[in-house]
């Protein structure tokens, strides 16, 4: 695996007066209920994970499960109550104010759930804001901001004020602003949840296109499993501040680590998660029909083609070598059978 960019070791965030003391007393065994009785709210509970360079980690969980809080800890918008966070090997909690500002100015970008645009600045001024804060001169920052405006497809509206834009347009401004300084690490907190389904899909596609080009390290929060599947390299599922499982989409669906994750993924359409490789039969490579499919194809995309076949369908890898086969009936099993078993 390539180098680690974000690394969390037993991160805790507990809100309340005596949070720090209570955490020490509990020796790392934090129970949300007992803490709540004593007036503390557990936001993040013992989170340990790593995010590699260029990877997109999607964080999911119900409302109030601590997703935003986790993100805030990693961007140090709040100080974690316990644990260690490393950004590119640097201990985040050790940074002084100046170093932190430098880090944010050059390395980090963040998109907020509620856009958080500055009401007194126009679109282009909003986007240029982080650059100007950094001390880039006006002309350069504006021309760079104009590039960003084009990137998110808002050209022609660069002189509008946020109050004159729709929710979707405002969020694009937010995205453009977070990208203006070309950050390596990109935090997105439910960036698309305020958008209507059509625009959301459009934005997701745009986002994927961007990511293809920019290859950033991303932490992305969403409520929407479809969205997660579409975007994620790995998914983390949180409940009451605890990361219940952190794995690839397929593993989460196929091998839920806890009862909660199983329930959470129950309604997820398997054909959208699983790829051919997950369901193929690697042992039989004979008696194949004419159709060949790639092993990395998501089932949903090739199901129709396979189902029209009568013979076995060959599975090939990227070098066109045959690595296995798949029966059309297997597809039917996966799509319908899996769900029947699950419920």
């Amino acid at each position: 695996m390539s180098e680690t960019v974000i690394k969390c070791e037993s991160v805790y965030k507990i809100f309340g007066e005596n949070a720090k003391k209570m955490l020490e007393e509990s020796n790392g065994n934090v129970d949300a209920k007992t803490f709540q009785e004593r007036g503390c709210i557990v936001g993040v509970n013992n989170a340990s994970f790593e995010v590699a360079k260029g990877e997109m980690l999607v964080v999911m969980g119900l409302s109030g499960s601590g997703k935003s809080t986790l993100l805030r800890c990693i961007s140090r918008l709040t100080d974690a109550t316990g644990g260690k966070i490393f950004i590119e090997g640097q201990d985040l909690l050790e940074l002084n104010n100046k170093e932190l500002i430098e880090l944010r100015r050059n390395k980090m970008g963040m998109v907020f759930q509620s856009f958080a645009l500055l009401p007194h600045k126009t679109v282009v001024e909003n986007i240029a804001f982080p650059l100007q804060i950094k001390g880039t001169n006006t002309e350069e920052s504006i021309s760079r901001a104009m590039e960003m405006v084009k990137l998110v497809g808002l050209d022609g509206r660069e002189n509008y004020f946020p109050r004159e834009l729709s929710g979707g347009q405002q969020q694009r401004v937010g995205i453009a602003r977070s990208l203006a300084v070309e950050p390596d690490i990109w935090f997105l907190d439910e960036p698309f949840s305020a958008l209507d389904p059509l625009i959301r899909k459009e934005m997701q596609d745009e986002f994927l296109r961007l990511q293809e080009k920019l290859q950033k390290t991303i932490m992305f929060i969403t409520h929407d499993f479809d969205e997660a599947l579409k975007l994620a390299d790995r998914i983390a599922i949180m409940k009451d501040g605890i990361i219940e499982q952190l794995d690839t989409p397929a593993n989460i669906v196929l091998n839920p680590a806890t009862e909660y994750v199983r329930k959470f993924t129950e309604e997820v359409p398997r054909e959208k998660v699983l790829i051919i490789e997950d369901v193929m039969d690697a042992s039989s490579k004979d008696n194949l029909g004419d159709l060949k499919v790639s092993k990395d194809e998501i089932i949903e995309n090739v199901a129709e083609k396979i189902l029209t076949q009568e013979k076995l369908v060959g599975v090939i890898d990227s070098n066109n070598n045959i690595v296995g086969s798949i029966k059309p009936s297997k597809i039917i099993d996966t799509v319908f059978g899996g769900r029947k078993n699950g419920s």
């Binding site: 007194h120 804060i133 937010g174």
Partner: peptide, 29 residues
């Protein structure tokens, strides 16, 4: 002021001074 606006300012790398005069006061205009 919505807390996210302040956080957006912080994430833009504002110093305390910049945060006050470029984000907070104009927003609370």
């Amino acid at each position: 002021i919505p807390p996210e606006v302040i956080e957006a300012g912080r994430m833009s790398g504002c110093t305390n001074w910049q945060l006050m005069f470029k984000v907070l006061i104009p927003t609370a205009r």
